[in-house]
Design a protein around this nucleic acid. Sequence first.
DNA 1: AATGAATGAGGTTTCATTCAT
DNA 2: TATGAATGAAACCTCATTCAT
Lengths: 191, 191, 191, 191
Amino acid sequence: MDRPQRRRLTPQARKTEIVEAAERLLQAHGGAGVRVEDVVREAGVAKGTFFLYFPTWDDLLETVRDRLVAAFAAASPPPRETDGPIDWPALVDRQAGAYIDFASARQGIGQAVFNSDFAARRPMAGDAPVRLAALIRAGQAAGAFGSVAPEPTARLLYVALDEAARAVAAGADRDAMLAALQHMIRRTLAP
Amino acid sequence: MDRPQRRRLTPQARKTEIVEAAERLLQAHGGAGVRVEDVVREAGVAKGTFFLYFPTWDDLLETVRDRLVAAFAAASPPPRETDGPIDWPALVDRQAGAYIDFASARQGIGQAVFNSDFAARRPMAGDAPVRLAALIRAGQAAGAFGSVAPEPTARLLYVALDEAARAVAAGADRDAMLAALQHMIRRTLAP
Amino acid sequence: MDRPQRRRLTPQARKTEIVEAAERLLQAHGGAGVRVEDVVREAGVAKGTFFLYFPTWDDLLETVRDRLVAAFAAASPPPRETDGPIDWPALVDRQAGAYIDFASARQGIGQAVFNSDFAARRPMAGDAPVRLAALIRAGQAAGAFGSVAPEPTARLLYVALDEAARAVAAGADRDAMLAALQHMIRRTLAP
Amino acid sequence: MDRPQRRRLTPQARKTEIVEAAERLLQAHGGAGVRVEDVVREAGVAKGTFFLYFPTWDDLLETVRDRLVAAFAAASPPPRETDGPIDWPALVDRQAGAYIDFASARQGIGQAVFNSDFAARRPMAGDAPVRLAALIRAGQAAGAFGSVAPEPTARLLYVALDEAARAVAAGADRDAMLAALQHMIRRTLAP
DNA sequence: AATGAATGAGGTTTCATTCAT
DNA sequence: TATGAATGAAACCTCATTCAT
């Protein structure tokens, strides 16, 4: 028949192809009902190839999650000291907006890896709240923020960020959500 | 034979038995890996009986979810006007504490019905944020709160409440989480 | 369509049906290439039913093996003292013949459970050689046999018995094999 | 790059490397669970190379089996007439001991090629019993053995030899097994 | 001759749901 | 109303074998 040629790639390239195929499907379906079968069809590879790169389905999801986290970290790097004195409130506002836009555009994936049975099965180190806590601490050191407890507050703010993104993805007014979020953050961290 | 006597109960009582058995297991396992098989064993009924009362597994989860929501509503009723002028900040603080204690004690169930594939399959009307928005509106009407947008803010505060409960259930210091939460809420709603 | 009616049986009856279907196939194919799929087709049950009774494929083989051993034990019971003095050489000759006939008629099953990867995966207590050693000991006590070491000799005689059956099943002359076997046993055990 | 130099060997040498790697693994694991993957890793060659030399997995096992048979034949050659009159009973005793020692030291391989699904899939010409029958015939011609039927008896003695080796490999007392075996053989073949 | 990425048929196992009793 | 044996559609995963390089 017209069986497509066997395409030989470097392992890294092939792995990426599979992950990206998975991301497309997860984004479209929120993770629910996406199976190995679907991913390999989307990626145009054989089933065995999938398991060559991901021993289990959860290993794929883990990779997807790691890529998501890394992508946001790369997209909104923490402020560098060298750029002069930091306008903390403005910085926080900007980051909040960036997060909403980033995460709402990837809501399906986020759902699949953060609000699913998978998330319960394979809990995550939880990098984001840690980075947020560090940010709060830095702002406090600069005298820009009040004396809230950094870690608990970071946790709470983080889920608020996430919820805002989810709301926007679900159709809520982006600017209204962002305004409410920024208000909450500014007020919470204000001296 | 000496088969255990078939216990004839009112339909409602039998249904409750099953739900409560399910709640015990979901609470213990966070929902992961709890199967119909397990529930009927815990409830002491036959498998067919389960489907007599719950056409599908998700119907059971829906019932569990509804009961959870109803239980909290019953446990912390909204303030009644008749009790004289309301101390809004104090009210909010009290509700936050109540929510943390209630939800952290039922974290497993909450996980199973709110942070799982089920939650994605069967989204919920979302009663809690609505009630919270109403509360904010009432406080605003009384001049106790500032002019934030009630619905978006309610959404954000609600997930913060939830996260605080989750953190406590996971071992975080209850009082520290509560303090951070109360600070956030008070500041966010302050005039 | 003409989907066959669902046949409800007692668990024991259904289990037996499945085992017997398996035995037919194993006997016919020597175990090689017989799969769950084949057994359920032969038994006329659904695949899930198989796993209801045999958690794994090897559990089925174990049941088949146990039945085989039990069947031979039942078919040729050890001599009872009450029947008067025993003619040991004649007894041994008779048992040898019985074993050859029994085992050669079930060569396929024997192959599947005793000379296969399964046998290596799940080694057996090895009841037969033990019973044979007891028989030798009893004959020695009666002065009918010489002073060979019972256990090692029983092991060796047992595999010879088995090989004779295998040879007969493979087409060798039954009487010639039996004669050679009886000669070997008699000579080995003679005083 | 620094990829390990592709070692160019004569085909025969490369094939031997693979077989010997396989033998090491089969001996260690009794054949169960040894896969092509394992063999090529042990041999330090690529997977494709394996199939260059062995069209199928069973071809490898066949080679292993042939080497095993040839190795024993080489290790204990049949007696040559030129050495003068043969002491048949002593010869037989010696061969039995040699077989036990040889086979018990290679029990894993023996299991993999003689008592496995492979052995059923690819039955063997059965050289060993044939040679044993010839030996019996020669002894009979010399007047040292009785008039047993050579072929059936050789079959039975051969499996006894094999079982003795298996028992020793499994931890049985070598000398006790050997004594029982020699007794059985001597008595069976005695005039 | 040698490599190792890619294949896909085939196998076991799970479990929500059905249905004869 | 209640039972529990029976179902079968997935789902995951393995691994001998192929083939482009």
